[in-house]
Design a protein around this nucleic acid. Structure first.
Lengths: 225, 225
DNA sequence: TTTAAAATATGATATTTGTCATGTTATTCT
DNA sequence: AGAATAACATGACAAATATCATATTTTAAA
């Protein structure tokens, strides 16, 4: 297993504030793991005892609602941390994490990080900042969910994925999701998600190839309401 | 101005982890202020340079959506802190805070707290915990907003207010909100909010006296879908 | 490759929610 | 108190979205 010091992950997240020594200690006890598409990393109700660090792949953080539908709260890609909240609270997690494609992750036990949290103020500050940012994003999504139409939210998520996770060499969104996942993100019925994507295609905003999606008219998408 | 050491507020929030000395320094430079019902405490887009501490009254944290409606993200009562995020990030706030009734607050400049944040690990940990909790709440609300019906959300908020903020001596919810505010919390049109409350009244779940609301059948409300 | 299963697509229809109009009841101000 | 204003209420209708049914296509498995 590669050492944390040389792992690109440390460029992206709060781990970058750890000193060389701290990183060495962490890398000595972290465990790496591979997850296949669809595999559950952790489930709501579980007690997580550390943070997961995404080295490759994408996963969704979601919660099962009472009507049995899976609502996606956040997509996490390379460089993201899962389970930050577990560092701070002993409560069970309220979210599930499920791999959307094959993933490579490492797990750092809470015990290893806690000492850094109290001793390395820069690291603590970075965790605080990431959490503050998650909170802002979540609040913003809440407002969008409450006030925007399903069609607008779908346009938004397509643009979001495009802008944040990029495209492959043919211009297709590099994150490939099922229509059911899109429905889970947007918060609508799968049929509605399918219908809206079909409509976008018909109107020339996007094109598709299998389940891959290419944005053809981002300005048009931006103005959908 | 009363000193922080003797203020009940310190029992409720992250300030409780400050040492006596830290509290004394903070109390020396905090400024107290009264806000009238409807008054704006801060508005989205502003840069806040500290935290507000609610000593009395209720306010809403909300965000104006593109369609011109005010979406409430959180209600904050005695003991709550506003502007936690400003301690950690220099970004402008994404939310507005508006008093829902007459309020008493104190403001603690960021500069006064920052040194404690880096020196007092227990205090930092408490801020982290509060933020983690806000994040959990926000994610949960997001899922509810996406998956529950307007009627269910309305029932939920009535029960939430009842359970978290209590009732007056006659049994009416101690927080008094306009129908428009309810609409803003639930994320629906004002007319819909009115209609649903009327229906709840007709069906015996609640009773009203002016704009005051009393829950008559909490079990019934819990089962609405 | 063939077959079974899953994902996508689309129509028909029901339900939920929003919008506009209009009337009624409370509040506030003088 | 009386007028003005804001808040509440409700009907009629339109629009958005969900649900159910049923093809079609794609993907996975034998």
């Amino acid at each position: 297993m590669s050492k944390c010091q040389s792992c690109i992950i440390k460029e992206f997240n709060a781990l970058k504030s750890l000193t060389r020594d701290e990183l060495m200690r962490v890398s000595a006890c972290k465990t790496g793991k591979l997850y296949k598409k669809g595999e559950v990393i952790f489930e709501e109700g579980e007690t997580i005892n550390g943070v997961y660090c995404v080295k490759d792949g994408v996963c969704k953080l979601s919660k099962l609602s009472e009507n049995g539908k899976d609502q996606v709260v956040k997509l996490v890609v390379k460089g993201g941390l899962l389970g930050k909240r577990s560092l701070v609270s002993d409560q069970k997690t309220n979210l599930s994490a499920i791999a959307l494609n094959d993933m490579e992750m490492c797990f750092i036990p809470k015990s290893e990080i806690m000492s850094d949290l109290s001793k390395n103020p820069k690291f603590t500050m970075d965790v605080l900042k990431e959490m503050a940012n998650d909170l802002k994003d979540s609040d913003d999504s809440l407002v969008d969910m409450a006030q925007k139409s399903v069609k607008t939210r779908m346009a938004d998520i397509l643009l979001y994925i495009h802008d944040n996770f990029g495209t492959d060499d043919e211009g297709y969104l590099s994150i490939i999701l099922s229509r059911e996942d899109y429905a889970g993100i947007v918060g609508t019925a799968t049929e509605s998600a399918i219908r809206i994507l079909s409509q976008f295609k018909k109107e020339g905003y996007i094109s598709t190839k299998g389940k891959r999606i290419k944005i053809e008219d981002d300005k048009g998408l931006k103005w959908i309401e």
